[in-house]
Nucleic acid binder design. Structure first.
Length: 512
RNA sequence: GCGGGCGUAGCUCAAUUGGUAGAGCGUCAGCCUUCCAAGCUGAAUGUUGAGGGUUCGAGUCCCUUCGCCCGCUCCA
């Protein structure tokens, strides 16, 4: 998350969460049992919204992929790999090593540290009877403070040769017991390092022993790398090309927060774009541009979208030196005035395929006929959050309006709105419901449409405002004679008259 | 995992020093209604997050637990 100009959003997340529950977008998971931290269920409208976002992505990336720099459509094929994979996958990917951070807590200061980020200072060759002072790695002030405490303890200045520095993780439990934590003066306030396993562990088969242990995938990407060879062998693809996948991933987040922004079960929409190393930088720029524009095309305004280059110290373990990662970030109400990550476009180099080649002992090189060269492709990865994208759409759509009956309406882009049109007979008599039913039948095959004949027209309009339905078609007393209906526009509340036989054309024009 | 705050109807919230849990909105039904939650009538919905304790009596006090929010920590 990063800072920027003041927030445009003037509502609180509580209001949005409340509307999501009230209107069937998102419910707390297993709510009747008191919920479960970090999990959420999508209601009927939330499901429709999320599916629309997913389908739009699939259509724009796989079925009708973007035009590449050479003016031709790029080539992307789809995939749906399993959630549980051979446990060795996660050793090769670096998740077993890099995704398990040993943590220590300080009982005195209530601080938590990554154990591998703490270093220890002590007298060389002395452990018994002495004291050890922990300090933060790469922090000169912390180091100086630790040394000062050590010198005070031994009551003299120390030469550099006399002191010994080692990682906290190298300490024995006895040594840890005589260690003084940063910002404290007493010994033994640090807990033993504890593993924070961010991957969900499970067991394959009915017998639960370590041999059957497996993990739910923490990202969908690895399933693509595992099938790289299969796709090359079976799909007549040629470099450069992409493999796309949408699916669930699971992470045991330390702190699930901010509604569905950081949940433990979430969905990703990922493309792994394979190319020759010499073209990787060009494709990286290409995908950053394509993906930023795509988010804007579904209704996220440029004001709330930000492209941000990662600082070098926050690069992922797979990120290629010097090329880095770009984030597409969105200004959520809970991050404002800052931004939160929506999608990361990463240059993964050939890290993953090389690792799998090494760990699996299977050749994953590609023979490039035009180049007459065999190589392990480099990978550009536009990795988008489907759950986060859905949340961004909800946040972007939420529009308070004290003037209208609902006090708020959801301004979804018509193409991804969970309900794209509503058909209403103005009153439930005089043949109006019959005309409405006929129109409803014509529209529903192609769009998400509802029909409602109950209650006053104002109430139905207001209900559609909260659901974010962009257009309501109302059959009135004149329809039978003039063959026209009223279109009511959600955003402006304006009304216009449209010929009955032009409603589908109207929808095609305004919704797509 | 730590600290702080919170948890009452679908939603937003009331409920005196501990004394029978209510309102508005929403939902549903009926009447009505020819363009914005109209009006009238009626209805449903709560072990007050869960469990235990103190008390004649607990939404209210105490303990435990679960969940949510904020801050730390973390986010390959």
């Amino acid at each position: 998350m990063s800072d920027s100009t003041p927030a445009a959003n003037t509502y609180s997340m509580d209001e949005l969460v409340s509307l999501c529950k009230r209107r069937g977008f998102i419910y707390p998971a297993s709510e009747i049992y008191g919920g479960l931290n970090g999990f959420w269920d999508y209601g009927p409208l939330g499901t429709a919204l999320k599916n629309n976002l997913r389908d739009r992505w699939w259509r724009d990336m796989v079925k009708r992929p973007p035009i590449g720099p050479d003016g031709e459509e790029v080539s992307i094929v789809g995939l749906d790999s399993s959630i549980i994979q051979n446990p060795k996958v996660w050793e090769a990917s670096g998740h077993v090593g890099g995704f398990n951070d040993p943590m220590v807590d300080c009982r005195e200061t209530k601080s938590r540290y990554r154990a591998d980020h703490l270093m220890c200072l002590g007298l060389k060759g002395q452990t018994e009877g002495g004291q050890i002072y922990a300090f933060l790695e790469n922090d000169d002030d912390s180091l100086a403070a630790a040394r000062k405490k050590l010198e005070k303890y031994v009551k003299r200045d120390l030469a550099d040769e006399e002191v010994d520095v080692c990682p906290l993780t190298a300490l024995s439990p006895d040594e840890l017991a005589i260690t003084v934590a940063p910002d404290t003066k007493v010994v033994g306030s640090l807990t033993e390092p504890r593993q924070f396993n961010l991957m969900f562990k499970t067991f394959v088969g009915a017998v639960q022993d370590e041999d059957s242990a497996a993990y739910l995938r923490p990202e969908t990407a690895q399933g693509i790398f595992l099938n790289f060879g299969n796709v090359v062998d079976t799909m007549r693809v040629k470099m450069p090309f992409g493999i796309a996948q949408v699916g669930k991933a699971f992470r045991n987040e330390v702190t699930p927060r901010n509604f569905i922004f950081r949940s433990r079960e979430f969905e990703q929409m990922e493309i792994e774009w394979f190319c020759h190393e010499s073209e990787a930088e060009q494709w990286f720029e290409f995908w950053c541009d394509v993906r930023a524009k795509w988010w804007q095309s579904i209704g996220l305004t440029s004001d709330n979208i930000l492209m941000r280059k990662h600082e070098s110290d926050e690069l992922a373990h797979y990120a290629k030196e010097g090329c880095g990662t770009f984030d597409v970030e969105y200004r959520f109400p809970f991050t404002a005035p800052g931004f939160g990550e929506l999608e990361g476009v990463a240059h993964r180099g050939n890290y993953d395929l090389s690792r799998h080649q090494e760990f699996a002992g299977k050749k994953l090189a590609y023979f490039d006929q035009p180049r007459n060269e065999r190589y392990i492709p480099h990978v550009i990865e536009p990795s988008a959050g489907l759950s986060r994208g859905t949340l961004a759409l909800l946040c972007e759509a939420y529009t308070p309006d004290p003037e209208r009956a609902s006090k708020v309406f959801m301004k979804f882009h018509p193409s991804i709105a969970p309900i794209q049109a509503a058909v209403f007979p103005l009153v439930a008599k005089d043949g109006m419901p019959e005309i409405a039913a006929k129109l409803f039948g014509e529209l529903r095959d192609r769009w998400d449409v509802v029909m409602d004949v109950k209650q006053s027209i104002g109430k139905r309009y207001a209900r559609m405002d909260e659901a974010g339905c962009p257009f309501c078609f109302t059959i009135d007393g004149d329809t039978a004679s003039d063959q026209a209906v009223t279109v009511r526009h959600r955003d402006t509340q304006a009304q216009e008259r449209v010929a009955l036989d032009q409603v589908a054309a109207f929808m095609a024009q305004h919704v797509g």
